[in-house]
């Protein structure tokens, strides 16, 4: 199945999600608001997206963009599920009940961006030690040992 077929299929099954769907760089992207994230995700799972491939976040200044990459084995197609959480209150729903694969990946997002996932059973740091201060993949993160490469390229 290619992307346009996926769009048609999605619009047929979930008309409410249809206007949120776009195509970027050959990939289908579904941008939702974060309170709708869980619903949209379970809708996609019922549509046949059985694998949670990747979960990450991107620092977009005012907000953090939480990105899930879902893959369907039956349709051989992938889709992005994105939502923006505010930087001052980073909180969203965990997709762990839908895909257990989110267990470690959301822990990593929490570790690196400080985004709290509600409904996640084990919200601890994963890569960094428990007493680490700050969330390193935020763009404004600094610490004493960080060396910034000079900008001469």
């Amino acid at each position: 199945m290619n992307i346009t077929e996926l769009r048609d299929h999605l619009c047929e099954q979930h008309p409410d999600l249809c206007p949120l769907f776009s195509i970027e760089f050959g990939d289908g992207v579904l941008s939702v608001s974060c309170d709708k994230l869980y619903e949209a995700a379970s809708g996609l799972r019922d549509l046949g997206f059985d694998r949670l491939g990747m979960a990450t976040a991107v620092d977009r200044g005012e907000t953090f963009e939480v990105v899930y990459r879902l893959t369907s084995r039956s349709m051989s197609v992938g889709i992005f599920l994105k939502c923006h959480v505010p930087r001052d209150a980073p909180k969203t729903n965990s997709l762990f009940p839908l895909w257990p694969a989110a267990l470690w990946q959301e822990r990593e997002i929490f570790d690196m961006f400080g985004i709290d996932f509600e409904g996640h059973p084990d919200m601890r740091r994963i890569l960094l030690p428990d007493d680490w201060v700050g969330h390193p993949l935020r763009r404004d993160y600094t610490d004493d040992r960080m060396i910034r490469r000079p900008d001469y390229i």
């Binding site: 990450t56 991107v58 620092d59 470690w104 990593e108 390229i153």
Partner: peptide
């Protein structure tokens, strides 16, 4: 000229879970 964010989805990480 620089990426804003690079994320590596590593299979070993997911498998180790």
């Amino acid at each position: 000229p620089r990426p804003h964010r690079v994320k590596f989805r590593s299979p070993a990480f997911c498998n180790l879970a």
